[in-house]
Every structure is written in structure tokens, then in C-alpha cells.
Design a protein around this nucleic acid. Sequence first.
DNA 1: CTTGATTTTGATAACGTTATCATTTAATTA
DNA 2: TAATTAAATGATAACGTTATCAAAATCAAG
Lengths: 346, 346
Amino acid sequence: MSSKATIVDVARECSLSQATVARVLNGQKEIQVKEKTRKKVLSAARKIGYERNILAANFRRQKTKSIAISIADLTNPFFPELIKGVQNTIREYGYSIVQLNNEWNPKIEQDNFKYMIQSRVEGAIISPSHPRADLKVLESLPIILLTNSDKFLGYDTIANDSKGGMVLALERLFEFGHRNIALFMGGSMMSADSSWRLQIMKDFCSNRNMFFSDDLCIKCDMSVSSLESFSQARTAMRKFLSKDTPATAIFASNDILALAALHVANEIGIKVPDELSIIGMDGILSGEISYPTLTTVEKNRSQIGSLAAKSLIEKIEAPVEWQAKKIILPCKLIERGSSGPVREKK
Amino acid sequence: MSSKATIVDVARECSLSQATVARVLNGQKEIQVKEKTRKKVLSAARKIGYERNILAANFRRQKTKSIAISIADLTNPFFPELIKGVQNTIREYGYSIVQLNNEWNPKIEQDNFKYMIQSRVEGAIISPSHPRADLKVLESLPIILLTNSDKFLGYDTIANDSKGGMVLALERLFEFGHRNIALFMGGSMMSADSSWRLQIMKDFCSNRNMFFSDDLCIKCDMSVSSLESFSQARTAMRKFLSKDTPATAIFASNDILALAALHVANEIGIKVPDELSIIGMDGILSGEISYPTLTTVEKNRSQIGSLAAKSLIEKIEAPVEWQAKKIILPCKLIERGSSGPVREKK
DNA sequence: CTTGATTTTGATAACGTTATCATTTAATTA
DNA sequence: TAATTAAATGATAACGTTATCAAAATCAAG
């Protein structure tokens, strides 16, 4: 069972040299082999059930034609589409994917990095588990980072323009006449520092003579699991609504938070969007099937994956010098049911 | 760059034989090597930056310590958790995962099967793209199928007891006093034949002298994308409600359908669960954050993944004979906000 | 036919590990 | 200390493919 037929067996079977057999079975293009012998080899191979040993081939060739993709958690709705984007793109180039999760655990992440090196992948797409992730081990490996943190100087990065996306949402709410917009943020040890969100909010408001205070800022811890975060966010939202806020709109820094806000609003009987507009960020499936459907600032994950893959392959196959690029993709505001013009209250 | 240090380089560096170096660096357990030489080797290895070449090791050992997992589509909410279950389990055994998607395309699926064989994975967990998927290529490979279709005789399979789960939901609705229950089904070319659902429904109703007719059966095509299915399901639901049904409850064969029903109900102003109870099946995230939250028959995907992994490894490491097992896991009824006692209408 | 060019095939050495011995060194006992 | 046993190290052959070069076969042209 374990002893599969090899190229030598095929050669013996059809009384040809293993070199010619190799040329027929594994050789690239159809170069330098007579049609007659080709057929002879193929039928012999079929007869004894030869299956190419990619392991041996990769080893000899010192190339794996594979890339790694390191993420935190596959069950986070953000990643599967991203991976799909990567897969679809690299398939064309003949590369295969090694997918590694680290469960937000820097130690596992390091182990994964080591594994990449040792298994000789030719490049990697990495979503760092935290802003200070240690990439030393990967020095000699072409990598693309999925982040917009400015901590990673000198690396190729690709990410959505979250800041621009946030402004997009705020502007739309402003157009709708909202002058008291709350900011719903999920802080967390692993996600990048999010003080910039508060800053953008403040700038936005002061530029437009809008009121903003800490009372319009809802904070809640994001946990590793989406569901837990949702529950914590609901609690935060209830607390926020309990103290009679002037807010007519909420911008949430991700869809889970936004959906939590929406849920509580539904629960309490606040009409969305008539009495309260809610805009989220990310564009997860749940937001497309909630009631009402969630207006959100979409990050095109499939596109990011695809672009990252292209960049990586370009980098892998680049001759010598490579100029690190930072790609920032614009977000897109997807207007759905949870946002609308402000209505005079009561 | 591409020329990394090898075990021979390390041996030269510390003037020892490559055999001893190998024993220190890659050998299992801490057998047969003096502490002094161990240190000598390790420091030499560190000095010249030796990284084990797993490729070469696997090749020589003729073992990859890896398994494949073949699914249709990573963005289908069903799979990520399943994969996570597999990953968590096999990590303990030191295996790694090769994850392959086929986009519901039997041709890609076949290619993936071939790839498994050629890359010498030691086993595979396979969710067949359709009930007649061709597994011939995998003859000599230990595999576990994720299906409850009875088309796969002689194979190890593991799946949830969908039939039992459906009865669970129907019984609960019956307890709640519902006597007119609609069945919301998503037919599709790739999912297994679902005529059994109708059969169970009919049996259930006739056993309890309950009314059932085709008018209480909502059908809609399930497409590859969850979102598309959702949209089609909404249309079907609207049509269903337009002709004034006696139904006080709906059982949907998956959560996407159930959420579509819920969405339409919210839209039209039908109070859930007061005027209409809805129960879905699967237990996807979106059902936990909808309003109201969705009562559902949960399939524990992580558990399935974990069990499949255990079974597979057991099978891989089994001495010789292996008795094919069919594991059927019970579903669990998760009662949330979308179901409740029937209320006298108007 | 010969000659030379061209195409097709063959022989063989890697690739970097692990596994199997044989050999040396150290430890134990008489 | 010599003899015996155990522990530690060394030498070397695989694993199955690809790559390189050499050899043979075929073809083209004189």
C-alpha cells in the first residue's frame, strides 16, 4: 500500500530509461519526446498505477510552489472570503496554499512562522495577530502583511482605508441631517490601537461645529469570539440608551457592534432607521440578512486577498530588488436599511 | 538566499558527523546523545542559521504527517467551524492540514483528490460535493466522509442526525400548540435529495392527526452563495404569505431560509414569535444575532470536525483491518427568541 | 552514402534528510 | 587492569524525482 509505483517501475515496464519516462510524465511542456514513446510510457504508467510523488519532485527541485497564509481565526467572518480571494488568484499561477491559524496566540503564530520556513513555502500572506507581532523569523521570506498599522515599516502591506471609510459613513450621516452621532468602538488587546477612531470623530465634529463628547462614545471589549463580543456589545448599548442620549445615529467600528446596537434598538422598540440610524463596518453576511439590513462600510475582503496574492507572487518571482509597497484600498459605503434621514423626535 | 544551511554544514561547523547532528536536531526523544555534544551541535546550528528542511525529512521518511480536508466552499458558514474542530484535534497528534476547496465543482474536486494522492497526505476528511461524487481515485487512502447520504456504502461517514433534529423541532412546535406547521425547504442540485424532509413532515402530521398539504410547503432554490439563497428565499416567503396561510409556525431546513422568513415577517409586521414561530436548522452565527434570535436545530460542526479527525487518525494508525463505521450525531434544539406558544389569532 | 546538424533518448549525479549498520568511546564488572 | 557491556558517535545507503550532460538515433543536405 505504502509502496507506490515509481518512475523506475514505469521505466522497467516499458523498457525505456527513467529519464524519458520522467520527461513524459512530469516534464513541463511537450518537449523532446516522440509520440510513439510518449504513448508507450503513458500506457505503462496507467497499467501499473503510477502516481507522481510531488513530495520527491518538490524536494529535488527545491521548490514547493506553495505559499502560506497566516490568520488568527478561520471562524472570524472576515477571513474565509479573504482566503477565497487568495485561492482564486494563485490557482492561475499554479501555487497551492498552506493555511495556518493562530487563535490570536502569538506563540502559535511564531510556531506557524517557523513551520513556514521549515516547510519551504515560497512566500506568505500574513495577518499579524497584533501590532507588534515579531516577524524576524521570516526575514528571508517574501511576505505581504494584511494591516494598515504603521508599526510595520519597510514591509509590503495591503489593507482597506478604514479611516477614509469611517469618514465616508460620517459624511453620509451628516448629509442625512444627523448632528449627534455616537461612536461605538470595540477595544481589544489584539486589534490595532483604535485611538485614531476617536481622533477622526473629534476632527470630523469640530470641522462641522458638531457636538461631541465622551457621552457619545460607547466602548466595549471585543473578545475573540464574535458571539461573545455581540453579547458584550448589547450590554454596552443598553447602558448607553438607558441614559437618554441625544444621539440620532450611531457609527460602529465593526458590524458585530452595529448589529448589537440594532438588536437592542429592536428590543426596546426604537425604530431603525426612523428614530436611529446605524452604520457598521466590514460587510459581513449577518448584516445583509438582519432586519433591517445593515448599512455598512464594506471592506472588500476577496479583493484584498486577490491583490495580496498577486503582489506576493510578483514579489516571489521578482528578479532581485524589490521596492516595498503599501497598498491602501478604498472602502465602499453600502447603503441598506439601517440608515436614513434624521426625523424630528416626538 | 535559496541555499539554506543543511545538516552537513552544521556537522562541518562543529566537527561531528551528520548522523549525530541529525540526532540532536531532528531526532525524536532525547535518546543517545551526550549533553556536551548536544550543546555543541545546537550552538553551531544557531550560528549558521540552520532550519530543518521538512520537505526532505518527509520525503526520506515517506510520511507527511498531514491530512487533507476537502470541502465545497470556505465562505459557506458551515465549514470554518468544522475545520477548526479538525485543526484543534489533529494538532495534538502532530498532523498538519491541507485544506482544499472545490467550489461545488466536481471537476475541481477530482483534481483535488488527485493532488491529495500525489502529495502523499496520509488521510482525508471529505465533504462530497454531491451524492454521487466519485471516490475511486482515493481507494488506497483512509478517508472519512461528512455526509448522511446512504449512497456511500462501505465508507466511514459522520454526520448529524438531520432527520431526528427535524422531528425535535416539530415536536417542540407541537408542544407549543402549533397545529399548522409549514415546511420551508431549499432544494438544490448539489445538496442531497431532500424528499425525506417532506416524508418526515407527512408522517409527523398524520401520526398526530395534523393537517398538512402542499400549500404548507414552501420551496425555493438554494444557490451556491448564501446571500443569493437568502434573496430567493425572501421572495418565496413573500409569495407564501400573500395567500393567507393558516400556518402558525414554520420549520425551515436551514438557517438561511429561516432568517429569510424572519426577515419578511419583520418587514410585513408579523410578530415573531407571537403570531408566527420560526425554527431553523444549522446554528449559524447570523441566527444568534438576528432579531429576534433564531430558534434552531443545531449541528455541532466543531464536534463533527473533531470526531472526524479522531476517527481518521485512528483509521490511519490502525494496524490492518478496519471496520467502516457510520457515526450519526444527535442534533440539539437551541431555543431562542423566534419560537413560542401559539396564540389565538385576532 | 557521408557529413553535419538536430532531435530524441540514456546514464548518472544531485537534493537533505533518516535509518541501518559498524565503530569508537565510556561505563561496569570481575 | 582486562574483559565485558552499554552508550555514544560515525559511515553510508537509501527515498523518487529533476537536471545535466553524453550518447544514440534521426534528419537534411551535399
